[in-house]
Nucleic acid binder design. Structure first.
Lengths: 216, 216
DNA sequence: ACTTTGATGGTAGTGACTGTCAAAAGGAGG
DNA sequence: CCTCCTTTTGACAGTCACTACCATCAAAGT
């Protein structure tokens, strides 16, 4: 009651702001170290030292070393945006719109950071697994969003298969070494777009030889 | 020259057979322990002791604790079968045929083992990630198989997206809690079939409202 | 100022995994 | 059967991620 919010952007108490700042500092420092010496060659102890905190504190901010790389402040935004898309848009279109909305608002610098993080997550084997795991959780969430959007149950077979195909397609496009991909050249938004196009077209490759095998 | 192969099935030297036997013993013992006390509660030391080998030797057979669960002797068979399908079958149909061919040849006991392993891999968080990671590698391989089959390059965008959608769809069907799924009730082959049906049908859910957004 | 709450640093441990080395066991040749 | 070579094994030591547990110290509310 007695306070006017002091410095503007962050509405929360002083304590919370310090926490947020520390978390972001730790992540920055860690990513820098990873970039310099490699992920496996960097110990948590080093990160903690460079960020001027104790190793114990590190694990209070990030449940594991992997999470320093995986933590993405953008995710909630993307979800929110996806959910906010007009209800009648089919899921793929909504996903496309959400991606554009979020990424277009980013500074080039932020986009570069995103790409770096993604590149690292995909190139380091130990991170790969964790990253994909993250994607899985995303799939489940996307499934429930798709469910919302189509008025079905989140554990409906069609919904899950749909979400899986959607995510899998995106992943396929983003994977390192995909050729067509403007994905690699500029922003991966372009690559993702291309993938979504394919899904919308019904994965044409599938139907080349139009063999309809009965359910058995 | 001087020896007739003594016991039939395994053509290799005595040494190799012992290795194979040990590996399979270790896996059996480990899975039993995991089933009894849980994955996280079982230490490598315990497994080694129960299998009557040293901890060092354990890691010579399996690069990590996770791999004891993940190692699947069936994978190569599935790949071989997929590859052996008639060339003109579209990939989804080929995948379906391969799955049936391999799983139909299994004893009910083996099928049960498969399901147990899958259930464990999906329910234990640490294993989830590793398992999905394994799937990723599978995706890349499926991509190259699809490439063979369609005469395209393995790093072609369409090929990768296709493989991703295929795997993602399967994953969506197999995920715990999927409702329609005969997947859970009997064999997951049925669930997988249903998923493949959906993909073959072009993911109908997608096209409800036929909004065609231009590539931008 | 006083209390309660929550964040921090330190210490001690567990457990997965790695590297090295010497001993045992498989396999080929005399 | 004995010898030489290769591979497999076990034991030891060490690293590192991660987990309590505890005492200290800063923030928030009264």
């Amino acid at each position: 009651m007695s306070k006017a919010t002091p410095s503007g952007s962050s509405p929360a108490g002083l304590r919370e702001r310090k926490k947020a700042r520390t978390r972001s500092t730790v992540q920055e420092v860690a990513l820098r170290l990873f970039h310099q010496q490699g992920y496996d060659q960097t110990t948590v102890e080093q990160i903690a030292a460079a960020a001027e905190i104790s190793p114990s504190t590190f694990f209070r901010y990030f449940p594991s070393k992997e999470d320093v790389v995986l933590y993405d402040a953008l995710d909630p935004l993307l979800i929110e945006s996806f959910r906010a898309q007009p209800a009648r848009l089919p899921p793929v279109a909504a996903m496309r719109a959400a991606m554009h909305e979020v990424f277009d608002a980013l500074s080039p610098e932020q986009v570069a950071d995103q790409r770096d993080r993604a590149a690292m997550a995909l190139s380091v084997p130990s991170l790969q697994n964790a990253w994909i795991g993250e994607l899985l959780r995303t799939q489940l969430m996307v499934a429930s969003l798709v469910a919302e959007r189509t008025g079905r149950e989140p554990d409906d077979l069609e919904v899950r298969v749909h979400a899986g195909a959607l995510l899998g397609a995106l992943l396929g496009a983003l994977l390192p070494g995909t050729s067509d991909a403007a994905a690699l050249s500029n922003d991966f938004v372009t690559g993702a777009d291309a993938a979504l196009d394919l899904v919308e077209a019904g994965l044409p490759l599938l139907h080349r030889a139009h063999t309809k095998s009965t359910t058995m």
